[in-house]
């Protein structure tokens, strides 16, 4: 994994509202996760076609549960724990109840993998199941790259309402993943 102290520092900054630091942190985490998930799926004898979906599901969990990180520890063990939990959960949902030694894939050498251009198909499908307004808000912010304030104007809502709706949409998406 990239320099540990960097990630912890980035998360600390993110907690104080530094969006750019949070973006960088999630970027680093995506790269690391992609590696780990790919190895984990391979070790479990599964195809790696679903890698990006598992990566996104894990990032979502990281985001929604980021308050559970103990600041007095480094970020890495917390990240590992979440990745382990989500990968195990994913495999269990697909019927694989054998205990896969997730820790094997955690120590994979860091490969120089850049941003992946593959599309997570499950995420796209699950997003389509969101209530219309929530889906629109997520799409405008994520795909169109619009700011919450702009989306608010476009949809005739207050910015606060847009933020609340975005948060709810992400929570609903997480639940949808679990049921998939």
């Amino acid at each position: 994994m990239t320099d540990q102290s960097d990630l912890s520092a980035l998360m600390r900054l993110a907690r104080q509202g530094d969006d750019e630091a949070y973006r960088r942190l999630l970027g680093h985490a995506s790269v690391w996760l992609r590696n780990v998930v790919r190895r984990g799926l391979t070790l479990a004898g599964r195809s790696t076609a679903d890698t990006e979906d598992v990566v996104q599901e894990t990032l979502l969990a990281m985001h929604l549960k980021r308050e559970t990180w103990d600041e007095t520890q480094t970020l890495e063990p917390w990240l590992r724990a979440i990745a382990r939990h989500k990968l195990t959960d994913y495999l269990r949902r697909r019927g694989l109840h054998d205990h896969v030694d997730i820790d094997d894939c955690m120590d994979a050498p860091e490969m120089a993998v850049g941003a992946d251009s593959s599309t997570a198909m499950d995420t796209r499908r699950l997003l389509a199941e969101l209530p219309v307004r929530q889906r629109r808000i997520v799409e405008e912010i994520s795909l169109e790259g619009r700011r919450a304030a702009d989306v608010a104007v476009r949809l005739g809502m207050s910015e606060g309402a847009v933020r609340v709706s975005l948060h709810r949409a992400l929570k609903t998406l997480a639940i949808a993943f679990r049921r998939d």
Binding site: Y22, S30, T119, V138, R147, L166
Partner: peptide, 21 residues
């Protein structure tokens, strides 16, 4: 959906966090 798109949504939701103690 591309991961970078999801990341954009997560960053936009950054303000929703509170401390879990």
């Amino acid at each position: 959906m591309k991961t970078e798109n999801l990341v954009a949504a997560l960053v936009a939701d950054n303000g929703s966090g509170r401390r879990w103690t």
